[in-house]
Design a protein around this nucleic acid. Structure first.
Lengths: 195, 195
DNA sequence: TGTCTTTTTTGATATTTATCAAAAGTTTGG
DNA sequence: CCAAACTTTTGATAAATATCAAAAAAGACA
């Protein structure tokens, strides 16, 4: 594969990875050859609970959420993800256990999809790819931890304030009902907090 | 360094790492040369909030906890760690920001300590070490996520039941006050749940 | 543009868990 | 082995947030 032939959609993914560690042409080609582009409409379910989570997505454009059903059958959002971010159900993907989470697009989206087997092949073939994988895992770990700490350390009101400060753009693209469940607050309480 | 000279204390660390990816003799030697053994008494503070968290520990023997102070100045435990586990304040170590967490030993402990600069050198020099680092990061990420999900999804009573089922040995080595704060419950409530 | 659907707000009440205070029990080191 | 320090339990009350029901508002589309 010639350099000029890398599909346009991969440029952002390469840019994100390249900041972490230089991507060789061979690794770029491997990434292209071991993945495929997916176009999906808004509200498409990419993963159902109970299924094996064996695909990791890079969001070229669009948005998605990860959620689970609590014991009363109510949806609880754990992540909102946008352009240039990776989209997986972490637990299912890393442990190869059946997923307890769902993944759904929030907007029409273009995604780059990589199967776990292909990813693992690349990790074995290109040891430097583990450098990138390690750094990305650390990055999402930290994001996850910050979120978990907020749930633990802050009151409902403070969590709302924090999110408003840190991710004001989220409120443009995600409904308040979704945000309430992400914050671990009932929709009614969020509505009262906002007044 | 000759193979026979690897200090006894490193055997468990090598065993843990070797299960993930074969450790070359060069890498083993580098690990020994870039780390040092630490003997500490019970209740030793290894990291204070506000400090830079620049050391990762492998627990050869003993136990430790990671905690932070909530806004009322009360300690909240986030991790208990034992033999053959890695001990860090994840946020501070990965982001190089000042730590909001404290690390304290719960028992007299023997630790292998590696400074972040040395670890980063090894990650650059031995690309396959990133394979191990990636897998370990994934593993602790999952542990962290399970814990965060329990806090989110379960009631106080259920969290106690879950912990009792999954880590009964914890109750032998850690006081109920510490466990209550780990579970996100006041000590009084935990005492009532146990009746 | 009007109607159907979804989202957000409002009010009344219930539940879980925290907080404060103090007693009882347990551990530890001089 | 005893005194001081820490840990756990018990009781009474308070606070934060959920739940249920319904109205109001906003958005989607035919």
């Amino acid at each position: 594969m010639l350099k000029e032939d890398y599909p346009e959609a991969y440029q952002n993914l390469f840019a994100v990875f390249n900041v972490i560690h230089l991507l060789s042409d061979e690794l770029k080609a491997a990434i292209v050859n071991n993945s495929h582009l997916v176009n999906v409409k808004r509200k498409t379910i990419l993963l159902n609970a109970g299924e094996s989570s064996n695909t990791i997505y890079f969001i070229v454009s669009g948005a998605a959420r990860v959620y689970y059903l609590n014991k009363d059958g109510k949806q609880t959002n754990t992540w909102f993800l946008f352009e240039n971010e990776l989209l997986i159900s972490v637990y299912g993907f890393f442990t190869a256990q059946p997923s307890f989470e769902y993944i759904e697009t929030l907007e029409d989206s273009v995604l780059i999809a990589v199967k776990r087997e292909k990813l693992d092949e690349m990790y074995l073939q290109f040891m430097e790819f583990n450098f990138i994988g390690r750094k990305l895992t650390e990055y999402y770990y930290i994001r996850n931890e910050i979120q978990a700490n907020d749930l633990r350390m802050l009151s409902a009101k403070e969590r709302y304030g924090q999110l408003l400060k840190r991710s004001p753009q989220l409120f443009q693209r995600v409904s308040l009902g979704h945000i309430a469940s992400y914050l671990g607050i009932s929709q009614e309480t969020l509505s009262r907090i906002r007044k």
